[in-house]
Design a protein around this nucleic acid. Sequence first.
DNA 1: ATGTCC
Length: 475
Amino acid sequence: MDLSRLEPLDAYRWSLRGEAGRAPVVLFGDRELLTGMDDKVLEQIGNVARLPGLVGAAMTMPDAHWGYGFPIGGVAAFDAEQGGIISAGGVGFDISCGIRCLRTSVTLERLARKMKALADGLFVSIPAGLGREGHLHVDPETLDRILVGGAQWAVEHGYGSGEDLACIEDHGRADGADPAQVSAQAKARQLREMGTLGSGNHYLEVQVVDRVFDASAAAAFGIAEGDVLVSIHCGSRGLGHQIGTDYLVSLAKAAGRLGIALPDRELACAPIASPEGQAYLGAMRAGINCALANRQILAYLTRHTLRHFFPDAELPTLFDVSHNTCKAETHRVDGRERLLYVHRKGATRAFGPGHPALPDRYRPFGQPVIIGGSMGTGSYILAGCAEGEARAFSSASHGAGRQMSRSAALRRWRGRELIDDLAERGILIRTESMRGAAEEAPGAYKDVHRVAEATEGAGLARRVAFLRPKICIKG
DNA sequence: ATGTCC
């Protein structure tokens, strides 16, 4: 990215020079992260800043990269009463993709003795890969109840407990979901895919807490150095993807009908208050519930498998965060509380200390934020902080973020070699696709340590712990 | 991300 068009606000915050007809643009990240970003990121977030009803600045997180319409790592808030819009490209195709993090009572010593068997066991029990079907097949009526009930449906049907729900965003269920706005095709794709991981950057990882940055927040989150965790990264599978595809068309038509000038056709959108906007909102929330139920079922399968190897294992939920959503939230803007529709595409909600939506135990420390690492590199747990509210509508990074395209990664690496190298370093990968593993090469991603450091430096969230991977099941 | 092109 050409930094000459940017004005540094400080070492971690940059403003794009103003232009007529465009709202402010702020990019978070250090000089090296921004230098490494594609110019497309700047072009795309500049386009977002031209959409109607934007409040404050259009923003990118430190892990941002080029995406469909909106950059991945993009954050934009809109006010329905000011003609604000909602955009499918601002949420992403994998609606409510996110990470469920489970704590475990398994010690590193016990894990070390069962590494290979556990890796093989998880690979058998966790359905992964493109188009892969799950153990649970549902009928259309049941799917509609899942789309309304989310993880709450899953818990009611034996896949977990109320303690899980307390540690999921929105208590495991998005209000206002409307399955009637989800196409028959989208639903048909999901009937056999509940409880599946998917492909691409999705994974299930067994991790060890390698370093604690903030002992009091870590204690509140229930973790300490040497603890074993399991993180599950996945989303709403075929259903979410089909909702995105369907509404790209309907929102583009609405934009045309209402004369909304689109700087890029990939930014198809409609006013939140329009029939098409409301329909997408209802469908997208159904997609959120699909993803929340999916991660709850995968948590159940994970517990079942770990208890086969460690019969006394407890695996309580630390937290479950989504990073592809648009959520109605109240934010203070220029001293006034306003209801905003915050698009976070490849960005995590990061409420600060004291927020009423947080579980009691976490509230004094802020919301757990999870930055998922690339294959074999490690992940971070952070905590939302007060500055993030004013700076980014309480948003933070969601991962390492790609720095190289999938095709470029395929040309450069071989999956088999990457996996053998990682095994020599004590990290076991099990995957359905060697091609997928090459695309997910650690070198194709930004440095997760730098992303986490910049996220803290920018005042978006504070680092709490670094997690080192031990076993990774890839789609 | 995705029954990677109906």
